[in-house]
Design a protein around this nucleic acid. Structure first.
Lengths: 253, 253
DNA sequence: TAGTGGTCTAGACCACTCG
DNA sequence: GAGTGGTCTAGACCACTAG
């Protein structure tokens, strides 16, 4: 029996599901460097025995880590550790603040305007409103380490923007955090990216010459109930990079 | 017994797993318009009975459709149809040709160069090679309905590029299709996006003025075995749009 | 409280990969 | 052929949401 590492059966009391606990366990093992890139993990049956869970629970844990870009598995071969380029590439919906912090930057914001607005036809369509309905507009510059890197112009249905003011937003530091405190949880978003030249307003706010190419991202965010929460138009300076991970997978579970 | 729609138990012979068959079945029902946006599906237990499969198989099918942006489920509430804005937003790794066709455009390409090259330090790092190792460089303009919309400059390890020439590429219409015929299957990719101004070469090839803002996308594609297949630098004209779907599943804030 | 999805189990068999 | 992941089942209980 290995004395140093008792496999530690899951705590049967607390809130975390077993497969999640296992996933954490495996993740820590990997991050501790016990497995090289592309190295095979023990087989599912073996892991099930070691950690004293059912094979199905092991599969859930593995699948969880696959979604997060930590593991991948191949039919008759085994389960492997994703190469480090792929690992920790989140592919989830983070707020600017969380994302920036994860990259080792200090996120910040400067609130330019919080004001009522009326829905245009285009925005009404996206937010499921009628043209002219009341919106709250929040315009900010986003900063990394004090430097402006992006402009965000968000439009929320008035019902959702209710009670949001400059003070609250600056205190929360993140619009998503503020919404979450109100029980509105962003669950999904669709995004659309292009490039465009900075107009004179963009240029001034971002401190770049007019005509500078910007990464333009439109986003519609939906709640858990799939009610539109926000339409946001974002423009980023060329030094800002947007990363994703995509997988082909016609397979699933 | 409903006469019009016999629930049809799965064909027990052919190649498709049962949950996949169920998923297709459900997808067709949805696309036929039998369910409105955000409408609840029958419960898992009910579906299991109707389609004569186990509840777990139903759950796998639902999971499969969740990944594809067709369904979402909420704990105590039920399983629902994603609103149409979200549905069919693929989030998978398609070749330019497949993606363009899916958007209703006619994809095309003009091969500018296929030539040997040597790995720079930067590219060597990404492709897991040593600087100076042999590469195949494939430079193309990509067309939609005959109009140039993007420039792709791909670098493949010589071992993978082996045997690729202009004729083969033009015949296949797509690099991915050509690789697939050779048994090399792209499984995953990581991407990095920014904006940049068109230099004079870009401008000429894309038929836009110098300085036009372009959407720049770097991509590293990995095989099923997670061997680097390709590093590709892509530059797209502002009219081209890059779409994604992101979800915020069960991660911590 | 009734109904829903979420977790977990134990066991069986299939499909694939590789020596 | 031995070992791996993939599919499927049947049943149990928990956690959440609603009327």
């Amino acid at each position: 029996m290995p004395a140093t590492k008792p496999p530690a059966p899951p705590a049967d009391s607390a809130a975390a599901p077993r497969y999640r606990w296992l996933a954490d366990e495996l993740l820590q093992t990997i991050e501790r460097g016990s497995f090289a890139d592309n190295q095979a993990l023990p087989s599912e049956r073996e892991l099930a025995e070691t950690y004293e869970v059912s094979r199905d629970t092991v599969r859930k844990a593995v699948r969880y880590l696959e979604e997060r870009g930590v593991l991948y598995s191949d039919h008759g071969r085994g389960t492997f550790v994703e190469p480090s380029i792929v690992r920790n590439m989140s592919r989830f919906l983070d707020s600017f603040s969380v994302d920036t912090a994860a990259r080792g930057g200090l996120p910040g914001q400067k609130v330019l305007a919080i004001e009522p607005a009326a829905a245009s036809m285009a925005v009404a369509g996206l937010l499921g409103l009628r043209p002219g309905e009341a919106l709250l507009r929040i315009k900010r510059t986003r900063l990394i380490n004090g430097q402006p890197v992006g402009l965000q112009d968000a439009l929320l249905p008035a019902s959702i923007g209710q009670g949001i003011d400059r003070a609250a937003l600056e205190a929360a530091g993140s619009l998503y955090r503020l919404l979450q405190e109100k029980g509105i949880v962003p669950a999904e978003a669709i995004e659309n990216l292009t490039a465009a030249a900075a107009d004179s307003e963009d240029a001034e706010l971002l401190g770049v010459p007019r005509g500078t190419p910007l990464l333009v991202c439109e986003r519609v965010t939906l709640s858990e109930r799939r009610e539109p929460i926000e339409y946001c138009l974002m423009k980023y300076v060329p030094s800002y990079r947007y990363s994703t991970r995509i997988n082909r997978h016609s397979n699933a579970l």
